[in-house]
Design a protein around this nucleic acid. Sequence first.
DNA 1: TAGGCCATCTGGTCCT
DNA 2: AGGACCAGATGGCCTA
Length: 135
Amino acid sequence: MSSNMDSGSESDSKGLGKYEGAARRRMAANARERKRMQGLNTAFDRLRKVVPQWGQDKKLSKYETLQMALSYIMALSRILTDARWRGAHQQWLDLHVDSLQQEAAPYYMGQGSPMSDDYTHIPYPYDCDTFQMSN
DNA sequence: TAGGCCATCTGGTCCT
DNA sequence: AGGACCAGATGGCCTA
């Protein structure tokens, strides 16, 4: 496969050998792809920092990070929706944030991976009927 | 050693 | 034409 990449009798428009030019474009594309994936991983790292881990020392995988972010957003939205319904005040909010953390903690405290047997599992179960975005 | 996770390469497709 | 994005293949590393 790579044996034909070393030399070429024809030249492309930039004066490079045919295969040398193709190899250079491939290398450039690889470098761009590497940079793109690094950007993606940076974004995952930033997401890991804002998503709760509750004492889990092991770094969340990409899949776990996405699942946790999804569940976290759902949970926070539910809190806001509930607060709106009940005309809540700060003390009520504080109470719910505490109880939320206690509910979710067992999933990541010595219970193993939450999606060890089912990739459709959501760490924070939520009720679709009670949770509705109203905008 | 098997399985999970990840980085990288690669070719295809779409967009500008 | 070239870049961005995507998905499949592959190999390395780590852990139970």
